[in-house]
Amino acid sequence: MTATSARAGGARGVAGTIATYLVLGVASVLFLLPFYIMLRNSMMTQMEVSSPDWQWLPAIFSLDNYLELFSDPSVPMASALGNSLLIAVVTAPVSTIFASMAGYALARLPVPGRGAVLTYVVVTMMIPGSVTFVPTFVVVGAMGGVNTTWGIIAPGLFNAFAVLLFRNFYLRFPAEIEEAGRIDGLGYLGVYLRIALPNSVSMLASLGALSFIDAWNAFLWPLVIGQDPASWTAQIALSTLLTAQSVNLPGLFAGAVVTVVPLAVMFLVAQRYIVQGLTTSGLKG
């Protein structure tokens, strides 16, 4: 489309290209604006943040707000960040590997009753995720999982949708490679561990990266199950600062920065996998 319109249109094509860049330029500035505001405000003084006169940058760059944020005894931001990291670091690989295991078995292993297990998995997708917070709370609560890290993590380790994605992936996996492994004396588990799994690295990375983002940014479930400050995640700590109508504005923005920056960096590093994961899960589901 680019090539044809530019060639055919001549002057009109050039004008169109300029207009396209103009729209995209303005839109991207608007999209990046909140990041800039977050960083700018986090380094300003209270006076500067609430001043009606526009200031591009703080007069003095100061990290005092960050120090203050981490020394606030009522909102344990440091331990909350630690909890979030632990939750995301456990959830992403474990949930992805579990899904890969089940997806492989459902796609490849010649077992009677395979279809029934597939149905069993698919049926759970009919009830939308966050609506189930009440039933899940009922079960995790009965198991004594309130205010525990495992209570936050456990329900997120089982993802029916990811199982389906992996099943589709392994259905297209060339059978010859597996047969070669069988001839070399590998059992069914050996073929999965030595051949199928190492060949799914990009799929594991894609879905793992998405799972990491979801686990880090999750709000409703950690809010429901982790009511004690010791079990707060970074999102709950930040929300507590926000809804407590804190008067320390720069401190609030510093809180936003420390919860956003680790993920934004990971996002930029793993962007290729994230885009791949989004297209796989968005369109093939």
Partner: peptide
């Protein structure tokens, strides 16, 4: 990249 930001942080801003 905003997709990497949580609803909480966005609500704050």
């Amino acid at each position: 990249i905003p997709a990497a930001v949580s609803y909480v942080a966005a609500s704050l801003v």
